[in-house]
Design a protein around this nucleic acid. Structure first.
Length: 424
RNA sequence: GGAGAGUUGUCCGAGUGGUUGAAGGAGCACGCCUGGAAAGUGUGUAUAUGGGAAACUGUAUCGAGGGUUCGAAUCCCUCACUCUCCGCCA
């Protein structure tokens, strides 16, 4: 959620930034500024009325103590006249406030100055490529065939148990996944991130905090019986750990990591994008999250990008880093770098991580603050990234490292998996 | 799931309708005392938001949200959470 004071002070800039996203309802900016003025005026009316009532009530209290009942009764008469007005004005105020905050929730975050204009993923900027694409032998297969040949993942049974888009990992497939999770968590904690295991279901309030509601209502699984949502990413419960907290400066930066399954309805997806492990309703992910002071948060973003990049290097996968354009960026983000790995048999880049700075967009909703040198509270910046999403990493590992004898694993995984390769 | 007891400031804890944003204590900060420290002693010590250059001041907040009342931490309703007992259970 954007801060209204910032919008009021920089209306032109806000509109210009929103245009980078191709945001359709720019007029909301002016509407919000006008609504805020009206709101303030009405609020001070209410407060003045309330002040009069409070004062009179105190006087009545004194009269009662002194036994001057007639004076008290006279005062009561006086107050009851104000009360009617107060009730009415309060109701109006509440209406205006609801209207105001509904509108404010519609505004996405302002893109950082470095975000390129653009509408589609084709407009994203490729920042760098790393690693080298493998030369596959004749007869190399895409991962959805490899997982059958090696009996790693079974989609038929997954579909039988839950539905299409659900996978059953088995045997070495399950172990490889577990090895990756373990490796990622160890790598992250060595980087100073504290590990968490959060609830996988969250309430409405928590889903609002990180911005999944109201923007992505239809993309989350909703348990109506208890009004809980299955988390679409570990970001949701973990960032909310600090909601409504004033974090002591000595605790900053807060660095957290968590492995969680992620649940996404992904309604409306189709085509080869959803083949095999490319897109699932439930997938495993290890997330990193930081809460930092506003000053220097972009240096922290770079640090997180480097952290993820090194992990991909340890996995010996060909990768590239993209800076997302305004049109492709998430609702809550100010700047997002996507990581993609090259899946050699599909000859396709697969997104495996998305590292973003949300500035104060999330922390404003969650009221995550710290005290600055002057003793004033200020909002922190929140950042997060995948480190890493599992299924597509597994897809790339299988495809890129296949040989006639079996699938070789990168050195970093040998101990975790207990073997250097998957034999035929 | 059933029954009961709770939720007050950084912490402990008092407070069942009237200058209560909240007694008392602890902690913390500053001062006095001391050669220095402890002890002692004095003063101060919530958050958000509006106004104001500031001093200061309005409003809201005693788990959350509603209600009764001129006035609610205190009375009523709904919900959440914690604890104890019973039931169920990995």
């Amino acid at each position: 959620m954007l801060q209204i004071n910032y919008i009021k002070q920089n209306p032109a800039l806000v509109k210009e930034r929103l245009a980078i996203r191709n945001f359709a309802r720019i007029e909301l900016v002016d509407e919000l500024i006008a609504a805020d003025e009206a709101l303030r005026l009405l609020k001070s009316n209410v407060e003045n009325l309330q002040a009069s009532v409070n004062l009179a009530s105190r006087e009545i209290g004194v009269f009662m103590l002194n036994g001057e009942k007639h004076k008290a009764d006279a005062k009561k008469q006086e107050v009851s006249k104000w009360k009617e007005e107060l009730t009415y004005t309060k109701a109006t105020l509440q209406m205006l406030e609801e209207n105001f905050s509904t509108k404010l929730l519609l505004l996405p975050n302002l893109p950082h100055i470095s975000v390129p204009a653009g509408k589609t993923p084709g407009d994203n900027e490729v920042i760098l490529e790393g690693g080298s694409k493998p030369q596959l032998f004749e007869g190399a297969k895409p991962h959805w065939e490899l997982i059958k040949d090696y009996k790693l993942v079974d989609f038929e049974i997954g579909a039988k148990l839950a539905g299409s888009g659900f996978a059953l990992f088995r045997g070495r497939g399950a172990k490889l996944q577990r090895a990756l999770i373990q490796y990622f968590l160890d790598y992250n904690t060595q980087g100073g991130y504290v590990e968490f295991m959060p609830p996988l279901l969250v309430n409405e309030n928590t889903a609002y905090g990180t911005g999944q509601l109201p923007d992505k209502e239809g993309q989350m699984y909703h348990i109506t019986g208890d009004n809980l949502y299955l988390i679409p990413t570990g970001e949701v419960p973990v960032t909310n750990i600090y909601s409504n907290e004033i974090v002591p400066e000595s605790d900053l930066p807060v660095k957290m990591t968590a492995y969680t399954p992620c649940f996404r309805r992904e309604a409306g997806s189709f085509g080869s994008d959803v083949r095999g492990l490319n897109r699932l309703h439930q997938f495993e992910k290890v997330e990193i999250i930081q809460l930092v002071k506003a000053v220097g948060s972009y240096a922290v973003l770079e640090e997180m990008v480097n952290h993820v990049e090194r992990l991909l290097q340890f996995l010996e996968l060909p990768y590239r880093i993209l800076r997302l354009c305004g049109g492709d960026m998430g609702f809550t983000s100010a700047l997002t770098y996507d990581f993609e790995v090259y899946s050699a048999a599909q000859q396709k880049w697969l997104e495996v991580s998305s590292v973003s700075n949300f500035e104060t967009f999330q922390t404003n909703r969650m009221k995550i603050r710290t005290k600055n040198e002057e003793g004033k509270t200020e909002l922190l910046h929140s950042l997060n990234g995948s480190s890493l999403a599992l299924p597509r990493i597994m897809a790339a590992l299988l495809e890129n490292n296949q040989t006639a004898e079996g699938i070789h694993l990168p050195k970093a995984l040998h101990n975790y998996f207990g073997a250097a390769m998957l034999e035929k």
